Simulated scan of single mutants.
Amino acid sequence: MTNSRSTAALRRFARRVPDIAEVPGGQLVELPGRGRTYVVDIAGPVGAPTLVLLHGTGCTAYLNWFPALAALAERYRVILFDQRWHGRGIRSARFSVDDCADDVAAVLDALGVPQAICAGYSLGGVVSLAAAHRHPDRVSGLVLCATPYRFQEKWRERAFHQAFGAFAAAFGPYSFRRIEQFAGRLPELPEIAWGPGRLDRWALTELRSTSGWAITQVIGEVGRFDATEWLSTLKMPTAVVITTRDRAIPVYRQLEMATMIPGASIHLIKAGHTACVLEAELFVPALLEACGAVAARL
């Protein structure tokens, strides 16, 4: 997508969501032995369950979740952070879903949180699944939004992901150097406030805080993810928000995932893959409903 098309799309989205003046402030947190990432921790009501929000590919925690933060914070302690190679997330020699899953546990350790519900969107849903599989004692519940459990099923998908993976592998070291250079030019902290009518400018800044080279590597790695063998072993309460007009993640695959996780509730919205922002008026109520369904079963 060209810059002009990106700008036009973001201006359209800015007209469709509340033109709030700011988002909650966060801080850079060092995760021992792993690296540093930008973390936002919203206290919420006393004694409320903790919710960790995990964003999608090419996004930041703020950009993916800001339309829902105020409503979620009325009911939960809300934690969100930039995942590896995104925004101000951890920079590492390579990107892996397992590392992202372990980052979730590391963030909980850094904040002194024993357990949390993981709510993930797209890539964030994949990371939530991996975190639940690798750290079942830390993930008390799952809310999976616009999420696949595998990618390579049909021949076109296999061809795309295998070719993309080969391209990403060939340019891996070069990509990492470019990602490091890109990250070095970012302001240390993101903007959290803006003037009236400037939401589109803020959103474009957030979108541009992730390198295209990083996105290439992330897609190359995530395409290999497949939870088929262990999906049915997940025991924590789970809710699945299915985007029924999604052109990125097949609807039938989202539904398959929901039926394979024991006891998962299903929440349908007539929206596309960018519903978290572009159709927030549909997504946020469904997200609240799904989070509530999981919290009620804890």
Rank of each mutant, 00 (worst) to 15 (best):
A239C: 10
K270H: 10
A264F: 00
T243E: 10
R36N: 08
H133P: 03
A293Y: 03
R253A: 05
H135P: 05
A258E: 09
I249P: 00
V39D: 01
Y62H: 08
H273P: 08
L231F: 10
H55D: 08
G292P: 05
A93S: 06
Y121V: 11
S140T: 10
E191M: 11
S122C: 15
A280W: 13
F66T: 03
P237L: 06
L255R: 14
L142K: 01
Y38I: 01
T2R: 15
A227E: 05
V284Y: 04
T243L: 11
R88G: 08
E74F: 07
T216W: 00
V294P: 09
S265G: 15
L51Q: 03
R150E: 02
E74L: 13
G89R: 02
G212T: 04
K235Y: 02
V241C: 09
V251W: 11
R150P: 01
A119T: 11
L129A: 04
S209G: 12
E289G: 12
M236L: 04
G26W: 02
D98G: 11
L31Q: 04
L278T: 07
A183Y: 10
A271Q: 02
R94G: 08
R5T: 14
Y121S: 09
A271M: 14
Q162I: 12
P114K: 09
R94H: 09
E22G: 15
I249Q: 07
F182R: 07
R150D: 02
L186K: 15
A275F: 10
H267E: 04
A73G: 11
L298R: 08
A264M: 06
I242S: 14
P114Q: 13
P190A: 07
W155P: 12
L28H: 13
D41N: 14
S128H: 02
E221S: 09
